[in-house]
Design a protein around this nucleic acid. Sequence first.
DNA 1: TATTAACCTATAGGGTTGGTAGGTTATTAA
DNA 2: TTAATAACCTACCAACCCTATAGGTTAATA
Lengths: 144, 144
Amino acid sequence: MLSKKTKYGIKALAFIASREDKKPVQTSEIAKSENISLKFLESILLSLRKSGFLGSKKGKGGGYYLIQEPEKIKMTSVVRVLEGPIAMVPCVSLNYYEKCNDCPDEATCSVHALMIQVRDSTLNVLGGNTLSDLARVKKKVQPD
Amino acid sequence: MLSKKTKYGIKALAFIASREDKKPVQTSEIAKSENISLKFLESILLSLRKSGFLGSKKGKGGGYYLIQEPEKIKMTSVVRVLEGPIAMVPCVSLNYYEKCNDCPDEATCSVHALMIQVRDSTLNVLGGNTLSDLARVKKKVQPD
DNA sequence: TATTAACCTATAGGGTTGGTAGGTTATTAA
DNA sequence: TTAATAACCTACCAACCCTATAGGTTAATA
C-alpha cells in the first residue's frame, strides 16, 4: 500500500511539473489545490529537495521548482526516495536488499521467485513513466 | 511491502502443495521446516481454511490439506485473501475500491493513472502463477 | 481413555503513519 | 531598515497495525 507521503509527494511533483512557467510554486498553493495538509506537505517537499528533485527559494515569490526536466525524472527514482523499496519483499529488492532470517535458500523459496517477477513488472511500469507523463494526465481536458 | 502473514501463508501453501501424497500436513511440521512461529502460523492456516483454500482434520494424523488442485489456485486469489488489495492505492483497487477523499477527479489524477498501470502489471504476474508453479520452485534441485 | 492437533479468544509490545504545534532563518519589497 | 513572506527545523503525539504470545477448548484417533 502506497503511503500518503508518497502519494502526496507524487501529486505535488506532478503539480509543479504541469506548470508552463518555471517560477517557484508555493507549498500553500499546492496544499490548497491538492487538498493536502500544509504542514505535512512541507515536510514532504523538504525531503524532495534534500534528495535532489526540487530546488527552493525563500521569501516572497519563493517556493519550490524542479531541478531537472520532467522528461528526465523517472517514477522509479521518485518512488524509491519517497516510499523506499519498490520490491514487496526485502530479499528481492535491488536497492534495499536484506536477507530473510527465515528462508535458508533463496533459490528454492517460492515467495522469492514470485516476488522477483512482481518486482520486475513494477519496475517496468515505473521506469516507463516520467514526471512529464504524469503532468500530461493532470492537464488533460475533461470530455463531458 | 508484503506482510509476514502473507509471506508465511504463501510459503505454507507451497509447502503443502509440494507434497506428493495428499495426506494432511501438520502446522508444527510446516512451522519447523519453514521457520515460522507456530502460533502465528496456526492463525494463518485457520484463515486460509475459512476462506476456502484449505481443509482440515483434527486429532492424530490430522492437519491441513488443499481443497483444490494446485494448478487451479491463482496467486491473485491467495494474495487477496491474505494481504487484501493488490492495488497500491484503494482508488484503483478492483476488489477493495475506495474513493480518495482528497482528489475530486480520478480522470485527471496523476497517481491514479500511474497506479492503474502498476496494478495491471502486478495482476498479470500474480494471475499467471498458480500454487503448482510455486511448488515447483520449492522442489527444484540445487545445482552446486 | 489418553493423546493428538486443530480451533478459539484475548492481549500486548513495538513500530509506523499521518498529522500538529511552534518556532527560526533567509529573501524580497516597501 | 523594516515588515512580510515562505522555506526550514525540531519536537511531539494519537491512532493504528503488525507480529507474536498465552492459555485454553474441541474433535478425532489409537
